[in-house]
Amino acid sequence: MSTAAKRRLIRDFKRLASDPPIGISGSPNPDNIMIWNAVIFGPPDTPFEDGSFRLTLTFSDSYPNKPPTVRFVSKMFHPNIYANGELCLDILQNRWSPTYDVAAILTSVQSLLNDPNPASPANVDAAQLFKENLKEYERRVKQTVEQSWLDNPDEIESEPTASTSVQAVPA
């Protein structure tokens, strides 16, 4: 008999597979149901349009009483996304509820893309540009959209070790 967390995750998967939100897909790692891979397409009519952004979600045994850890694997430029891919999203912290499921989480993340919260800046540059220079902000966002198309996209920032992607545009 699996734990409550696993049962719930299987159910979440079932719901996600049978009734997927638009532009979102996700599934558990075949070796470990507590780790999920997901892809979110940027919402149309936004600077994020056509981007296919990768994320991971890691769950603990206390799910759904505790939220998963959600991290973007693709490089993002957004006021509420840290350089290492972590998100600053209220429903993943203090406004979490056990009634949320994976579909709800991914949908919220997708909505966050074109609806940043200036009050909790995780990426100071992005937050500033968003406020003061929208055009430049959108240019930077479009860069990440293009990067997301590469097979091994230039992922989260790290130390100055060379990344594997062929990237002409400076980050």
Binding site: I24, S25, S27, N37, V39, F41, S52, V73
Partner: peptide
Amino acid sequence: ESGGEFERLKREI
């Protein structure tokens, strides 16, 4: 390592 998985998810959408 999971590149393939992500590609599959993308294609699904």
